[in-house]
Write a protein that binds this DNA or RNA. Structure first.
Lengths: 167, 167
DNA sequence: TTCTGTGCAAACGCTTTGCACGACT
DNA sequence: AGTCGTGCAAAGCGTTTGCACAGAA
């Protein structure tokens, strides 16, 4: 397999492992797979969880900023390494929001996002909204859609109304 | 409007203007909108058209390389500026393929892409395949899906078969 | 004690930008 | 002639990497 130089992390393999609900479970999971449990990994994972609870997708940079507030000694490189590591482990999904990578823990129920081009807000879209599409694709082309975390562009109801009134 | 620093070009506004079929039409269109017709713009546009004819999405870097073969004096910065310029004019669409921006002239019939995570190949998907989804979204959430050039991840029929046999 | 993971610093790839010159209108 | 677009060079941003040390096993 040719070593892709960049974007090697864009397609999280995700082995279907689900998000542990407590930090302890993270520790168990890491140890169980022969990885070490470090302060940094716990901290980064907590930051992601907090972000997810707030319905936010965090970019690597954002994670770094949040982590730094409490733990200024943790390096940017560690954040990136840890995020990619989680991604490979399937603990975290990565998506592309407006050309920027964003991360979110797996295990929050499968969903996608609707990104409004006007106001920039994102709506959560339940994953099964795409099942019809997936079925059709499979039937017609044999392509097995594996869309775990899409970000679909468009215009939200609110902005659409606003646009109509202006027109 | 707050000046977004980066990714300001990620969301091509696209005013619905269609691709001219000859270089002359490009010239007319540019002049018509009060822009200058330059050698560089014509060359870049031709490169994109050639790429599109070959069914390829070209990254800025690829466009640069192709252009450079014939016109080594044209600078990388010009390529980027010109691509963004075309994008703003709605002559070109931009999509995000595996974390890389790719460009394609508008006016090739509206379509999306299915990107196989295994072999990396892309299949073209007719745009109306998403119309059911768009309708459902509009009805349920009021969100007006405006997906002109999505790249959907998954596994192509060929790779799916190969995976089954291994399993 | 061993060896993985980290901090540090530097490099990387892609993209944008400031400036002065060149060329389209 | 006026001004937009370009080449050049440098910087920017997000991200990765080499190396030596720290700390989990």
């Amino acid at each position: 397999m040719p070593a892709r130089r960049r974007a090697s992390n864009t397609s999280c393999p995700s082995r279907g492992s689900n998000l542990p609900s407590h930090a302890e479970t993270l520790a168990e999971l890491l140890r169980g797979r022969g990885h070490r449990v470090t302060r940094q990994r716990t901290i980064v994972f907590d930051a992601l969880r907090k972000g997810a609870r707030a319905g936010k997708h965090l970019s690597a940079e954002t994670v770094y900023e949040r982590v730094r507030q409490q733990h200024p000694e943790i390096d940017r490189a560690t954040i990136y390494r840890t995020l990619n590591f989680f991604c490979e482990l399937g603990l975290v999904h990565q998506a592309d929001l407006n050309g920027r990578h964003v991360f979110e823990p797996t295990g929050t129920h499968p969903h996608h996002h609707l990104l409004c081009a006007r106001c920039g807000h994102t709506l959560v879209l339940n994953a099964d909204a795409l099942q019809d599409l997936a079925r059709t694709l499979l039937r017609k082309t044999g392509f097995r859609l594996d869309a775990r975390h899409l970000i679909l562009p468009g215009v939200c109801a609110h902005c659409a109304r606003a646009a109509e009134q202006t027109a």
